[in-house]
Design a protein around this nucleic acid. Structure first.
Lengths: 212, 212, 212, 212
DNA sequence: CATGAATGAGACTTCATTCAT
DNA sequence: GATGAATGAAGTCTCATTCAT
């Protein structure tokens, strides 16, 4: 009867070490780019042998997936804090800002959805637990946005389009904005600026809601 | 007197072979993803030795750049055909459609802008001709969209935001839409559909212009 | 408590394998010339995959440097054994002989000094430990020669030139002798013979010391 | 009867073009180092196709050999101008200076003798004409030095050693001096200086001749 | 549990040389 | 004579992954 508890503790420790490794991997991703995220480098910086990595992740792919889920959870947490039914326009802007930060951290390197989809085809043998975690956090994110679009004050802007259908539009707008302004912003003479563009976008997008 | 003609013919042939190689590279990009686009594989599928590739492209980077420019030209051609000042909303939709096709073909794998920016820093020695070609086609594309947004019937939707500032918003929206709907669409039970989403988006985006 | 010992043993083994690889590289250098010393060939003859070479040497350059240091250490050991303050002339001859052997083994292919200088510029990231080893053994070698030239019985031959300035002259003479006699000696009908030439050289060089 | 003249002219032209190519190769050797001397690069800079190179040189090896002979001829010409029976010591210094210049130009990259010997083994099929040219110019060079050492005023320094045996000693000294001082001289804080070292060397070497 | 040596494939790239045109 | 496209081998190096210890 004591065994199960032991085992459980072991599992918890293992999960913690997993997270620690993911942290290291993320730091490398940020500091040196996607190509620098190699099993060896992560292992070394995590104080492990490269062989040991395979005790925590079946694959390099699984490590990447784990990073993705981790980051999406963070994004969800940040976005949750933005909800403000009294001022959905402002909330949208804030969400956009958090998405940008997520994008800079992670999304820049790995596209969520194409990753998920592509890998479902190729690596059908990825950890199913992790895949369902991914789906879970994704749907939570969408719910967040949908909740926002369901506030009465937004209905004007949506022009009768049901919120669940407006979600992808809003999400797409934000993602597109980030992607398009980000690389330009790092130029010497940036022609666009994220803050301004997102401001314009929300103005256009929420025209009706502004003056009900 | 015949020599120059000969040489010119040679050059034309060479250019054709370049394009053929780019075609092969693109096929691989589509079928197997970005990482599969290696000099070796392209060469083999093009029926060349890997060494011969360097007769046509100084670099792997130059090959990629060549693909990018090629695709953007196609996109511009397709978009140009959509211009319709009498019905800018419809034009936007069509452009979105073409952008989607471009994105499926190419943009999915390589982000234009981040590519351009990153490489300007790292590979200052890329074929300058090609780089200026890239800049040219990019600015032409932007002009197209800007032209569209400058039609009187659009001014309502923009709410006083000058067209040049609305361009990135529109572009971002389209790009975002494509990215977000595309991978989901290829799922077994797609929850979104590109055509519908872009329809909703234009409805929201151009609310004012619809009923002046 | 046993772990550290284990690790140490591992390190010793690794160092031994390094040396074994250097041995192989040297054999190739001797048998087939400098250009034949490629990572691939060394690896194959050492019974390794080319990839494995990079466990022992960060670079091809590091391998070369390792060979160089190894050989200079041998040279120094051999030269040290020649010191004989009572008969510096004979000592010089013996040193010349050892330098010749070193030269045949290694120096023929790679010029110490130009290697050291060139690489300090280009590869500032070479193993610093090894670079300092190189400098150490080089200065020890120079000290040896300088010590020899500082014996009172040599002062006559130097004609007031301080020993530290005579060092390069002597060294150069020996290096030049070796280089010039060696290739000719391997001809079918050698016109010069190292032993005779070095004999003549010391006679000329140390004229005064011979009859004080 | 006219044919032979034609052919002869053709041959002269061909020889001239050969020399032009050698010139180009040498420029590359000087400017960019030995590894930069590739058939392609030489061809391009000479305004030829790479294929055409093989009309003038059977091999890359033959091109190198041609460069070598060319340079030795230049060296011989320069050295010839130094002969001064009244002041052989000064003449030796000047010869050393010219050897240094030759060395910087060419010898630095390719060792005469080891080249000659090695290639006689490996490439027995090198142009025999050229090989005999090489031998000829080499022996002329040795004669020059030998002539210098045969002047009466030198006999003291040689201590009875016949001039033909002193030749390699002197040559070796010079070659060694150049090799040893040159790389150090390009350091930031050069410890040796060619002019000074050669001065010291001649002082030691010609002790007797200075004060008969 | 953990190590790290080793593999084997593959990445990009350059080169001397040949040969159809 | 001359071209330049093409080859094939070789170069250095990195990586995910496995396995004896």
């Amino acid at each position: 009867m004591t065994q199960p508890i032991f085992k459980q503790l072991r599992l918890v420790e293992k999960e913690n070490r997993r997270l620690a490794i993911v942290d290291v991997a993320e730091r490398i991703l940020n500091d040196e780019g996607l190509e620098a995220v190699t099993i060896r480098r992560v292992a070394k910086q995590a104080g492990l042998s490269s062989g040991a990595m395979y005790m925590y992740f079946k694959n390099k792919e699984e490590l990447m997936l784990c990073m993705l889920v981790q980051n999406l959870r963070l994004l969800k947490k940040d976005m949750s804090a933005c909800i403000d039914d009294n001022n959905p326009v402002e909330a949208i802007k804030k969400m956009g800002y958090h998405y940008m930060r997520y994008f800079v951290r992670f999304g820049k390197h790995i596209n969520i959805l194409s990753f998920a989809v592509k890998n479902k085809e190729k690596y059908g043998d990825l950890n199913p637990q992790m895949l369902s975690d991914l789906e879970a956090v994704l749907s939570e994110l969408l719910s967040l946005v949908q909740g926002l679009l369901s506030t009465p004050s937004m209905s004007g802007a949506l022009q009768g389009i049901p919120p669940e259908r407006a979600v992808p539009v809003l999400w797409a707008l934000i993602q597109g904005l980030v992607q398009i302004t980000l690389p330009i912003q790092s130029t010497e003479a940036p022609t666009y600026n994220f803050d301004q563009v997102i401001d314009d976008a929300t103005r256009i997008f929420t025209y009706r809601s502004a003056r009900p």
